[in-house]
């Protein structure tokens, strides 16, 4: 419940403050968002499975974001930033789909 509220507060803050993304962060923000979404869906699935753990969720959230950003950074340094970002997004997307499928099975038994 608190998590949902916090999410809403964050969205409202973003809408109200209308910040602009710093140029240095521009390549990383979308990947970080996707990685964080992956962690969130993983957390929801774990919650439904009854094995949710606060510490694990926090660690996975942070590490997901950091690793995703690191991979993009490495890709930029190696000159394959675009392709590597695509790869990260694909992998995270597959994981999100898997988690969503598990959540769906939980909720609808289908």
């Amino acid at each position: 419940m608190i998590a949902v509220l916090a999410l809403i507060v964050g969205v409202v803050l973003g809408v109200v403050l209308e910040p602009t993304v710093p140029v240095a962060l521009q390549p990383y923000l979308p990947i970080a968002v996707v990685a964080a979404l992956d962690a969130v869906f993983g957390g929801i699935r774990a919650k439904l499975d009854g094995i949710f753990d606060d510490k694990q969720f926090v660690v996975s959230f942070v590490s997901n974001v950091l690793v995703a950003g690191l991979i993009v950074y490495l890709g930029d340094q190696l000159g394959v930033g675009g392709q590597l970002s695509t790869g990260v997004v694909v992998v995270l997307g597959v994981r999100i789909f898997g988690n969503v499928a598990a959540i769906r099975r939980h909720l609808f038994r289908a």
Binding site: V4, G10, V11, T20, L37, D54
Partner: peptide, 25 residues
């Protein structure tokens, strides 16, 4: 639980913020 919830809330707030910022940019 309250401490952990606070951390999770902060992280999710950041996520919502980042999503909106990214969408706008």
């Amino acid at each position: 639980i309250s401490a952990a919830n606070a951390v999770i809330a902060v992280l999710l707030g950041l996520l919502g913020f980042a999503v909106v910022v990214q969408l706008r940019s």
